[in-house]
Protein backbone atom coordinates (compact mmCIF):
# COMPACT_ATOMS: atom_id res chain seq x y z
CA UNK A 1 0.00 0.00 0.00
CA UNK A 2 2.77 2.34 0.97
CA UNK A 3 4.52 1.70 -2.31
CA UNK A 4 1.38 2.70 -4.17
CA UNK A 5 1.26 5.94 -2.25
CA UNK A 6 4.87 6.70 -3.11
CA UNK A 7 4.17 5.95 -6.75
CA UNK A 8 1.18 8.28 -6.66
CA UNK A 9 3.36 11.00 -5.26
CA UNK A 10 6.04 10.49 -7.89
CA UNK A 11 3.52 10.60 -10.70
CA UNK A 12 1.89 13.65 -9.16
CA UNK A 13 5.30 15.30 -9.10
CA UNK A 14 5.99 14.45 -12.73
CA UNK A 15 2.67 15.88 -13.87
CA UNK A 16 3.17 18.97 -11.81
CA UNK A 17 6.59 19.43 -13.41
CA UNK A 18 5.17 19.00 -16.90
CA UNK A 19 2.45 21.52 -16.12
CA UNK A 20 4.97 23.98 -14.80
CA UNK A 21 6.96 23.78 -18.06
CA UNK A 22 4.20 25.73 -19.80
CA UNK A 23 4.04 28.29 -17.04
CA UNK A 24 7.82 28.53 -17.12
CA UNK A 25 7.86 29.29 -20.83
CA UNK A 26 5.27 32.02 -20.43
CA UNK A 27 7.31 33.59 -17.65
CA UNK A 28 10.58 33.31 -19.60
CA UNK A 29 9.07 34.84 -22.72
CA UNK A 30 7.42 37.65 -20.76
CA UNK A 31 10.56 38.49 -18.84
CA UNK A 32 12.69 38.29 -21.99
CA UNK A 33 10.36 40.52 -23.98
CA UNK A 34 10.26 43.12 -21.24
CA UNK A 35 14.03 43.07 -20.79
CA UNK A 36 14.65 43.25 -24.54
CA UNK A 37 11.92 45.79 -25.21
CA UNK A 38 12.55 48.33 -22.47
CA UNK A 39 16.01 49.68 -23.46
CA UNK A 40 14.92 51.11 -26.82
CA UNK A 41 11.76 52.59 -25.33
CA UNK A 42 13.81 54.28 -22.63
CA UNK A 43 16.19 55.69 -25.19
CA UNK A 44 13.52 56.91 -27.58
CA UNK A 45 11.04 57.90 -24.89
CA UNK A 46 7.72 56.15 -24.47
CA UNK A 47 5.66 59.05 -25.80
CA UNK A 48 7.90 59.56 -28.84
CA UNK A 49 7.90 55.86 -29.52
CA UNK A 50 4.15 55.39 -29.30
CA UNK A 51 3.03 58.63 -30.95
CA UNK A 52 5.82 59.23 -33.46
CA UNK A 53 4.49 59.06 -37.01
CA UNK A 54 7.76 58.40 -38.78
CA UNK A 55 9.60 55.08 -38.89
CA UNK A 56 13.03 55.20 -40.50
CA UNK A 57 14.98 52.51 -38.75
CA UNK A 58 18.02 52.42 -41.01
CA UNK A 59 18.26 56.09 -41.89
CA UNK A 60 21.26 58.23 -41.11
CA UNK A 61 19.15 59.99 -38.49
CA UNK A 62 16.87 57.11 -37.60
CA UNK A 63 13.43 57.83 -36.23
CA UNK A 64 11.38 55.25 -34.42
CA UNK A 65 7.73 56.22 -34.27
CA UNK A 66 5.32 53.32 -34.28
CA UNK A 67 1.98 55.11 -34.34
CA UNK A 68 1.44 54.06 -37.98
CA UNK A 69 1.89 50.41 -36.98
CA UNK A 70 -0.38 50.65 -33.95
CA UNK A 71 -3.15 52.38 -35.91
CA UNK A 72 -2.79 49.94 -38.79
CA UNK A 73 -3.09 46.97 -36.46
CA UNK A 74 -6.12 48.48 -34.73
CA UNK A 75 -7.84 49.47 -37.98
CA UNK A 76 -6.99 46.17 -39.64
CA UNK A 77 -8.38 44.20 -36.73
CA UNK A 78 -11.54 46.33 -36.61
CA UNK A 79 -12.01 45.98 -40.35
CA UNK A 80 -11.64 42.23 -40.13
CA UNK A 81 -14.16 42.08 -37.29
CA UNK A 82 -16.69 44.31 -39.03
CA UNK A 83 -16.56 42.06 -42.08
CA UNK A 84 -16.07 38.74 -40.32
CA UNK A 85 -18.38 38.93 -37.30
CA UNK A 86 -21.75 39.19 -39.08
CA UNK A 87 -20.82 36.36 -41.45
CA UNK A 88 -19.48 34.28 -38.57
CA UNK A 89 -22.45 34.76 -36.24
CA UNK A 90 -25.10 34.20 -38.92
CA UNK A 91 -23.27 31.06 -40.00
CA UNK A 92 -23.13 29.89 -36.40
CA UNK A 93 -26.87 30.51 -35.87
CA UNK A 94 -27.68 28.67 -39.08
CA UNK A 95 -25.46 25.72 -38.30
CA UNK A 96 -26.44 25.31 -34.67
CA UNK A 97 -30.20 25.87 -35.05
CA UNK A 98 -31.48 25.50 -38.58
CA UNK A 99 -29.15 23.38 -40.68
CA UNK A 100 -30.01 19.74 -41.41
CA UNK A 101 -27.62 17.32 -39.73
CA UNK A 102 -25.78 16.39 -42.92
CA UNK A 103 -25.21 19.96 -44.00
CA UNK A 104 -24.01 20.78 -40.51
CA UNK A 105 -21.44 18.00 -40.30
CA UNK A 106 -20.18 18.78 -43.81
CA UNK A 107 -19.89 22.49 -43.03
CA UNK A 108 -18.09 21.79 -39.78
CA UNK A 109 -15.46 19.79 -41.64
CA UNK A 110 -15.01 22.62 -44.14
CA UNK A 111 -14.69 25.18 -41.34
CA UNK A 112 -12.16 22.96 -39.59
CA UNK A 113 -10.22 22.85 -42.84
CA UNK A 114 -10.34 26.63 -43.13
CA UNK A 115 -8.86 26.86 -39.65
CA UNK A 116 -6.12 24.44 -40.56
CA UNK A 117 -4.85 26.22 -43.68
CA UNK A 118 -1.41 27.66 -42.91
CA UNK A 119 -1.32 31.44 -42.89
CA UNK A 120 1.35 31.54 -45.59
CA UNK A 121 -1.16 29.92 -47.94
CA UNK A 122 -3.72 32.63 -47.17
CA UNK A 123 -0.98 35.12 -47.92
CA UNK A 124 -0.01 33.48 -51.18
CA UNK A 125 -3.57 33.27 -52.47
CA UNK A 126 -4.09 36.84 -51.33
CA UNK A 127 -0.99 37.99 -53.16
CA UNK A 128 -1.78 36.19 -56.41
CA UNK A 129 -5.57 36.52 -56.53
CA UNK A 130 -6.88 39.13 -54.08
CA UNK A 131 -4.30 41.87 -54.65
CA UNK A 132 -4.69 41.94 -58.46
CA UNK A 133 -8.47 41.73 -58.01
CA UNK A 134 -8.52 44.73 -55.65
CA UNK A 135 -6.34 46.61 -58.14
CA UNK A 136 -8.80 46.01 -60.99
CA UNK A 137 -12.03 46.47 -59.03
CA UNK A 138 -11.06 49.76 -57.43
CA UNK A 139 -8.93 51.03 -60.36
CA UNK A 140 -5.81 51.40 -58.24
CA UNK A 141 -2.23 51.37 -59.43
CA UNK A 142 -1.52 48.61 -56.93
CA UNK A 143 -3.78 46.38 -54.85
CA UNK A 144 -1.53 45.69 -51.87
CA UNK A 145 -3.27 47.71 -49.18
CA UNK A 146 -4.94 47.84 -45.80
CA UNK A 147 -8.15 46.78 -47.52
CA UNK A 148 -6.62 43.56 -48.88
CA UNK A 149 -5.23 42.77 -45.45
CA UNK A 150 -8.66 43.30 -43.86
CA UNK A 151 -10.25 40.89 -46.30
CA UNK A 152 -7.62 38.21 -45.66
CA UNK A 153 -7.91 38.68 -41.89
CA UNK A 154 -11.71 38.56 -42.02
CA UNK A 155 -11.52 35.16 -43.71
CA UNK A 156 -8.87 33.93 -41.30
CA UNK A 157 -10.87 34.77 -38.17
CA UNK A 158 -14.08 33.16 -39.43
CA UNK A 159 -13.36 29.65 -38.10
CA UNK A 160 -12.69 30.77 -34.52
CA UNK A 161 -15.79 33.00 -34.49
CA UNK A 162 -18.03 30.28 -35.93
CA UNK A 163 -16.75 27.48 -33.71
CA UNK A 164 -16.93 29.34 -30.41
CA UNK A 165 -20.31 30.87 -31.30
CA UNK A 166 -21.73 27.46 -32.18
CA UNK A 167 -20.77 25.99 -28.84
CA UNK A 168 -22.20 29.02 -27.05
CA UNK A 169 -25.48 28.75 -28.98
CA UNK A 170 -25.73 25.02 -28.39
CA UNK A 171 -25.32 25.54 -24.66
CA UNK A 172 -28.52 27.61 -24.54
CA UNK A 173 -31.07 25.46 -22.60
CA UNK A 174 -33.71 24.04 -24.90
CA UNK A 175 -36.46 25.10 -22.47
CA UNK A 176 -35.85 28.77 -23.32
CA UNK A 177 -36.46 28.16 -26.99
CA UNK A 178 -39.41 25.86 -26.33
CA UNK A 179 -40.99 28.52 -24.16
CA UNK A 180 -40.61 31.13 -26.87
CA UNK A 181 -42.02 28.82 -29.53
CA UNK A 182 -44.94 27.89 -27.28
CA UNK A 183 -45.79 31.56 -26.92
CA UNK A 184 -46.19 31.77 -30.66
CA UNK A 185 -42.88 33.19 -31.82
CA UNK A 186 -41.58 31.91 -35.12
CA UNK A 187 -38.34 29.88 -35.09
CA UNK A 188 -36.30 32.74 -36.58
CA UNK A 189 -37.68 35.18 -33.98
CA UNK A 190 -36.80 32.67 -31.30
CA UNK A 191 -33.21 32.26 -32.51
CA UNK A 192 -32.48 35.95 -32.73
CA UNK A 193 -34.52 37.16 -29.73
CA UNK A 194 -33.91 34.28 -27.32
CA UNK A 195 -30.95 32.10 -28.33
CA UNK A 196 -28.51 34.77 -29.44
CA UNK A 197 -29.10 37.06 -26.42
CA UNK A 198 -28.78 34.04 -24.11
CA UNK A 199 -25.45 33.14 -25.69
CA UNK A 200 -24.15 36.68 -25.92
CA UNK A 201 -21.20 36.22 -23.56
CA UNK A 202 -19.96 33.27 -25.57
CA UNK A 203 -20.45 35.14 -28.83
CA UNK A 204 -18.60 38.14 -27.42
CA UNK A 205 -15.78 35.79 -26.44
CA UNK A 206 -15.67 34.47 -30.00
CA UNK A 207 -15.32 38.01 -31.33
CA UNK A 208 -12.49 38.77 -28.93
CA UNK A 209 -10.80 35.51 -29.87
CA UNK A 210 -11.08 36.50 -33.52
CA UNK A 211 -9.64 39.92 -32.73
CA UNK A 212 -6.71 38.23 -31.01
CA UNK A 213 -6.04 36.09 -34.03
CA UNK A 214 -6.25 39.06 -36.40
CA UNK A 215 -3.96 41.17 -34.24
CA UNK A 216 -1.32 38.46 -34.01
CA UNK A 217 -1.28 37.40 -37.65
CA UNK A 218 1.94 38.27 -39.46
CA UNK A 219 2.70 36.09 -42.44
CA UNK A 220 -0.53 36.47 -44.40
CA UNK A 221 -0.84 40.23 -43.97
CA UNK A 222 2.81 40.72 -44.80
CA UNK A 223 2.17 39.32 -48.26
CA UNK A 224 -0.85 41.50 -49.08
CA UNK A 225 -0.39 44.78 -47.22
CA UNK A 226 2.62 46.25 -49.02
CA UNK A 227 4.65 46.84 -45.84
CA UNK A 228 5.41 50.52 -46.13
CA UNK A 229 5.34 52.46 -42.87
CA UNK A 230 2.61 54.91 -43.97
CA UNK A 231 -0.08 56.27 -41.72
CA UNK A 232 -2.98 53.93 -42.45
CA UNK A 233 -5.54 54.69 -45.09
CA UNK A 234 -7.77 52.12 -46.69
CA UNK A 235 -6.07 51.76 -50.09
CA UNK A 236 -2.57 52.65 -48.96
CA UNK A 237 0.32 50.32 -48.46
CA UNK A 238 0.56 49.80 -44.70
CA UNK A 239 2.60 47.98 -42.09
CA UNK A 240 1.19 46.15 -39.06
CA UNK A 241 2.85 45.73 -35.66
CA UNK A 242 3.52 42.08 -36.44
CA UNK A 243 4.89 42.67 -39.91
CA UNK A 244 7.08 45.52 -38.69
CA UNK A 245 8.85 43.01 -36.47
CA UNK A 246 8.87 40.18 -38.97
CA UNK A 247 9.99 42.08 -42.05
CA UNK A 248 12.98 43.85 -40.55
CA UNK A 249 14.18 41.38 -37.95
CA UNK A 250 16.32 39.23 -40.22
CA UNK A 251 18.72 41.99 -41.24
CA UNK A 252 18.46 44.21 -38.22
CA UNK A 253 21.20 45.25 -35.85
CA UNK A 254 21.83 47.60 -32.95
CA UNK A 255 19.18 50.14 -32.12
CA UNK A 256 16.95 48.97 -34.96
CA UNK A 257 16.81 45.48 -33.46
CA UNK A 258 16.11 46.81 -29.98
CA UNK A 259 13.29 48.93 -31.34
CA UNK A 260 11.84 45.85 -33.02
CA UNK A 261 11.80 44.11 -29.65
CA UNK A 262 9.99 47.14 -28.26
CA UNK A 263 7.37 46.79 -30.99
CA UNK A 264 7.01 43.15 -30.00
CA UNK A 265 6.48 44.28 -26.41
CA UNK A 266 3.73 46.69 -27.48
CA UNK A 267 2.10 43.88 -29.44
CA UNK A 268 2.40 41.65 -26.38
CA UNK A 269 0.59 44.24 -24.26
CA UNK A 270 -2.22 44.36 -26.83
CA UNK A 271 -2.53 40.57 -26.81
CA UNK A 272 -2.57 40.61 -22.99
CA UNK A 273 -5.48 43.06 -23.03
CA UNK A 274 -7.30 40.79 -25.48
CA UNK A 275 -6.69 37.82 -23.20
CA UNK A 276 -8.01 39.63 -20.15
CA UNK A 277 -11.15 40.51 -22.09
CA UNK A 278 -11.47 36.93 -23.22
CA UNK A 279 -11.21 35.61 -19.67
CA UNK A 280 -13.82 38.09 -18.58
CA UNK A 281 -16.33 36.94 -21.20
CA UNK A 282 -15.67 33.24 -20.67
CA UNK A 283 -16.14 33.61 -16.93
CA UNK A 284 -19.38 35.47 -17.42
CA UNK A 285 -20.62 32.75 -19.70
CA UNK A 286 -19.94 30.05 -17.14
CA UNK A 287 -22.11 31.90 -14.67
Amino acid sequence: MNRNKALEKIIHGIFLFLGLITVGFVIIITVYLIMAGIPAIRQIGLINFLTGTEWKSTGEHPSFGILPFILTSVYGTFGAIIAGVPIGIFTAVYLSKMAPKRVKSFMEIVIGLLAGIPSVVYGLVGMLVLVPAVKTIFHLSDGASLFSAMVVLAIMILPSIIKVSISALEAVPKEYEDGSLALGATPVETYFKISVPAAKSGIAASVVLGAGRALGEAMAVMMVSGNVANMPSIFQSVRFLTTAVASEMSYSSGMQRQALFSIALVLFVFIMIINVLLNFFFKRERK
Binding site: L128, K135, S141, D142, A144, M223, V228, S237
Partner: peptide, 23 residues
Protein backbone atom coordinates in the same frame (compact mmCIF):
# COMPACT_ATOMS: atom_id res chain seq x y z
CA UNK B 1 19.91 57.38 -50.56
CA UNK B 2 17.01 57.45 -48.14
CA UNK B 3 14.66 59.29 -50.44
CA UNK B 4 12.97 56.23 -51.90
CA UNK B 5 9.19 56.25 -51.89
CA UNK B 6 8.01 52.68 -52.20
CA UNK B 7 4.47 51.46 -52.72
CA UNK B 8 5.45 48.06 -51.37
CA UNK B 9 8.39 46.82 -49.33
CA UNK B 10 8.82 43.08 -49.74
CA UNK B 11 11.13 40.73 -47.93
CA UNK B 12 12.59 38.58 -50.68
CA UNK B 13 13.68 38.73 -54.30
CA UNK B 14 11.09 36.06 -55.07
CA UNK B 15 8.29 38.26 -53.72
CA UNK B 16 9.54 41.20 -55.78
CA UNK B 17 9.55 39.07 -58.94
CA UNK B 18 6.06 37.70 -58.27
CA UNK B 19 4.66 41.16 -57.62
CA UNK B 20 6.33 42.81 -60.61
CA UNK B 21 5.26 40.01 -62.93
CA UNK B 22 1.68 40.52 -61.75
CA UNK B 23 1.39 44.27 -62.16
Amino acid sequence: GEKSKYRQELTSAGDVITTVSGN
